[in-house]
Nucleic acid binder design. Structure first.
Length: 346
DNA sequence: GAGACGTGGAA
DNA sequence: TTTCCAAGTCT
């Protein structure tokens, strides 16, 4: 029995019941695919439920404020996904007459949608026989067929895409795509795959050659940069100052406290700087040790300073404490604010 | 096209 | 503790 047929039989018995699989509505499928990019199901599921509840239709999303979309996305990471999601909702609703494109070539034109997501939507919503190629597919195909091309190199993607497009069931492209991803996520997993109970092991190159741990080939090196953030809790009565991140940097469009970024964690220098900036105020360091927060390419060292001010700077947004929860923050900041001000909501 | 972009969980 | 990763895309 061939690869495709085996996989479909496996899926028939082992498929997971997930809310976005019980629909062919492209809006819901699109939503789930964006949320699940680089994200585990357990982490993404609550966000999917929250988005479908708050924005039941594409129109609801298209006519929402970006701040509200980002607030719902808070904590999921890779926030450009949320901004692009909102941008594309507006495109479809206002420019495409509220009609979702119904084929791969038109779907992939949309912002935030690449080859993976376009194939997912085209196959799940419209049964178009285009194969998804995600991390799972790279792993399953490289192991089963013994493909040693480095998956970190972009152009090697075509090797896998072409193979997957040949393998896909023309009759049930949606089931095949779900099957190969589910299989990769639950059986042919990255570490300690369940080869003993794998229904494909009799024909699997990696299993037969004992190379399961060497495939897929992935040589990617990333450099982590240290950054030192000093956040200021500028307080007067029951209000504090906020600002929105806008520049080409992390956390675009999210809100944060007024920030002083330094080249290193030097408490003395910072006190001196803040004393000059706020000569009449007492400055209190809140965090004895900097909070460490790791991003994909940065290690953040975050300190907090509380300063009672006489007046707020006009460049800042002044927000009452009981309305802090209306804004979207990087999760490390929200966790701090929630705890520091003993906020309940969210 | 290589590097950047979040977060939380597992080994 | 450190590293790698999880249904990728953008610039």
């Amino acid at each position: 029995m061939d690869f495709t047929r085996q996989l479909l039989l496996w899926y028939q018995k082992n498929k997971r019941d997930l809310p976005w699989r019980n629909t062919t509505n492209p809006y819901y499928i699109w939503l789930s695919e964006i949320i699940l990019q680089q994200t585990r199901i357990e982490q993404g599921l609550p966000y999917y439920l929250s988005f479908t509840e708050n924005f039941p239709t594409l129109k609801d999303l298209a006519t929402a404020n970006e701040d509200d979309v980002l607030k719902l996305w808070q904590g999921l990471g890779y926030y450009s996904r949320a901004r692009n999601l909102h941008f594309t909702a507006k495109t479809i609703y206002f420019d495409l007459n509220n009609t979702f494109p119904d084929n791969y070539n038109n779907i992939i034109k949309l912002k935030g949608i690449g080859p993976y997501t376009a194939a997912a939507i085209a196959s799940f919503a419209y049964k178009e026989p285009v194969a998804v190629v995600d991390g799972n597919v790279f792993r399953v195909l490289s192991r089963f067929f013994g493909i040693h091309d480095d998956i970190a190199i972009g152009k090697n993607r075509t090797v896998f895409q072409n193979l997957a497009n040949e393998l896909i069931s023309k009759k049930h492209p949606d089931l095949f795509n779900h099957a190969i991803m589910d299989f990769g996520a639950t059986v042919c997993v990255p570490a300690n795959p369940k080869c003993g109970q794998c229904i494909l092991n009799q024909n699997c190159y990696a299993f037969l050659k004992n190379k399961v741990n060497q495939l897929p080939v992935k040589n990617k090196k990333i450099t982590i940069k240290n950054r030192f953030f000093n956040y200021l809790i500028l307080k007067k009565d029951d209000k504090i100052a906020l600002q929105q991140r806008t520049d080409k940097d992390i956390w675009q469009q999210l809100y944060e406290l007024p920030l002083v970024e330094t080249l290193q964690d030097n408490e003395e220098d910072l006190f001196e700087y803040l004393s000059a900036l706020f000569p009449e105020s007492t400055i209190k360091k809140i965090t004895p040790n900097a909070i460490k927060h790791k991003l994909s390419h940065q290690q953040l060292h975050i300190s907090f300073y509380e300063i009672q001010v006489a007046d707020f700077d006009t460049k800042h947004l002044v927000v009452p404490l009981n309305q802090l929860d209306l804004y979207a923050y990087p999760i490390v900041l929200w966790n701090f604010l929630k705890d520091f001000f003993k906020l309940e909501k969210n």
